[in-house]
Nucleic acid binder design. Structure first.
Length: 102
DNA sequence: AACATGACGGACA
DNA sequence: GTGTCCGCCATGT
């Protein structure tokens, strides 16, 4: 993967507005590499601390917090709620809070 | 080179 | 709605 794509991805993640979420797959598509959701996972895992990314605004395509994320689903839940996003007991978020840039 | 592994996604039953 | 199956793609061993 080229460096510019990687930078692009980091920029996109930084641009997720407070109070909204998006998915791994959608970020991949925005960066021009559809079907590469797993690459986004890799970026988040390796670059979050370095770039101060809002990692908590990224959930899976079913708008649900990943159960086994290394940081902890509970912490992600707290962060989202602190931004005003309702998260239910199962970690699900309603689609009104999905970031839909046009 | 050949596997195995993921904070995944889509199709299908 | 749920669960299974398979494709995906960079990385690690």
């Amino acid at each position: 993967m080229t460096e510019d794509i990687k930078d692009n991805i980091i920029t996109i993640i930084k641009n997720i507005p407070k109070g909204y979420v998006t998915s791994y797959g959608r970020i991949a598509s925005m960066a021009g590499i559809p079907r590469s959701a797993r690459y986004i996972v890799y970026i988040l895992k390796t670059e979050t601390s370095h770039h101060n990314l809002p990692w908590h605004r990224v959930v899976n395509s079913r708008l649900q917090i990943a159960i086994k994320n290394p940081i902890g689903q509970n912490e992600q839940m707290q962060l989202l709620r602190s931004e005003g996003i309702p998260v239910d007991q199962e970690g699900k978020i309603t689609k009104e809070y999905l970031w839909m840039p046009y």
